[in-house]
Design a protein around this nucleic acid. Sequence first.
DNA 1: GTAGGGTTAG
Length: 632
Amino acid sequence: MKGVPMRLVLLGTALSRSCSCGAFQHNMPPETSLLLSHCYNRDLPRAMQTLDTMERRGVWADAIAYSELIKCCLAHKAVKEGKHVHHHIFSNGYQPKTFLINTLLNMYVKFNLLEEAQILFDKMPERNVVSWTTMISAYSYVKLNDRAMELLIFMLRDGILPNMYTFSSVLRACERLCDLTQLHSSILKVGLESDVFVRSALIDAYSKMGELLEALGVFREMVTGDSVVWNSIIAAFAQHSDGDEALSLYKSMRRAGFSADQSTLTSVLRACTSLSLLELGRQAHVHVLKFDQDLILNNALLDMYCKCGSMEDAKFIFNRMVGKDVISWSTMIAGLAQNGYSTEALNLFDSMKVSGPRPNYITILGVLFACSHAGLVNEGWYYFQSMKNLYGIDPGREHYCCMLDLLGRAGKLDEMVTLIHEMTCEPDVVMWRTLLDACRAHRNLDLATYAAKEITKLDQHDTGAYVLLSNVYANSKRWDDVAEVRRTMRARGIRKEPGCSWIEVNNQIHAFIVGDKSHPQIDEINRKLNQYIRRLTDAGYVPDTNFVLQDLGEEQSEYSLRHHSEKLAIVFGIISFPREKTIRIWKNLKICGDCHIFAKLVAKQEQRHIVIRDPIRYHHFQDGICSCGDYW
DNA sequence: GTAGGGTTAG
């Protein structure tokens, strides 16, 4: 192994250079103290003037003074002066110490001049752990992740041992699980796992790869930590839609004596959002007031109110936010659209064009969603076609999906097929499923079969395809075909996800599944439900058994419909809340047509405001109508 | 002289 002698040679060179560098530290001229004093006062013009005088007289300052001068340039964001200092330091044949070159490197990185930093780095006669870490951190910051990982390898080859700074930087750049595992074991080997920076970076890296159990493992090994480590693990679960775990970790964090900061509250709000916990979200809002100016936190608050279906609160927050960014606007536009206020969403987009930030990819999705859910086909086409010209945004998969959805809802099946063929990307399962769903709604059996085949070509186990196809057949009462689809599903081990609805009562979540008898108040719920249905039937309600997807016979079909999870949840809401309180329910599948009619009628009869959130949108039921205008 | 956590769609 020739590595060891090489290291010795390098060390020798470095020592001889540092000796020559030390030479200019003798004869320290009086100008040096003047330079230092200007730098400490952050008086850059005078400091640069002093430097010029020194150049003219042929005297030089020491490394400390130069490093202060560089800090002064950074504080003034003075790139030109910074470069001048760089050339000054290298002029007259001096060889600055590694410490000083690192300061220059750092300056270039902070000025976002990575190329200059790299050129300087390449010329360095000796690079220490700080030099390498500065470059690695710079590349990971601008997401040139491969380059950052590559530098780590070169660094190790050079025989330089990474420290906690290096690991926390490189962990941000790590994209592959195998690399992460290797980094993790290196961290353990050098004993840096207890460093709080390394630990939080590890948790974050595992979280980004969806390895939440690993992240939790790293977290649980912590003996002493800080709030950032707690925030990392809470964010990990909040971001992966495990709101329960995020909230339970948050409680443990408080018990452990840490207080919530902006980051904690943002994750808590996100958890409330994913669980539709409006009341808990309101409680978090009280703590948010402490951090009134925090944009990210306010965006999360805004999103929470939108997603929990409370648009009055969302509008209030949005209107009083200062310095709204593109995320604030996009959140509000999508929120309005999803809650059924399509016109308001499009109006808001108009104001954004006049006085807001430049719309981005996601803003346009909200706009297309608004068009789609209001049946505005022409407007949808207009926005879709103009996004490239007006905002320079190329339509992506999601935009095509939105357009397909728009056409599908409007029953324009032919245009859907044309768009699928004209797209710049290959159609995926979601797109075919959108076509299939449109075929179900508009009863096109042949096209439905075709779409279902395309889906199974891409994914044999796509539950949605089978369920939708069996719905298509059920709608046409082709029970043999329904049975055939179900047989295939059984043979392939595919099970339909059962419909489930949730409602929050007194800070507790109550879950209902179709025909569920496990709820402690189920007898009372069923009694009330029968009572409502009797009254509604007198008022003309006819159960629409088209939404029952098995050949059960009318009587049994009605029983199944009657006990759909959303009906049970609605009745439980009515029993539990006073009349003036909005009943908020969320469910895992799209609302069924019969339950939609039921909700409208019961909202009118009982004078209630009912909000049902499904995976893609919201239905606000009041006075016998729904905010979706029966178009969903 | 080098390092960690939070927001919009699906």
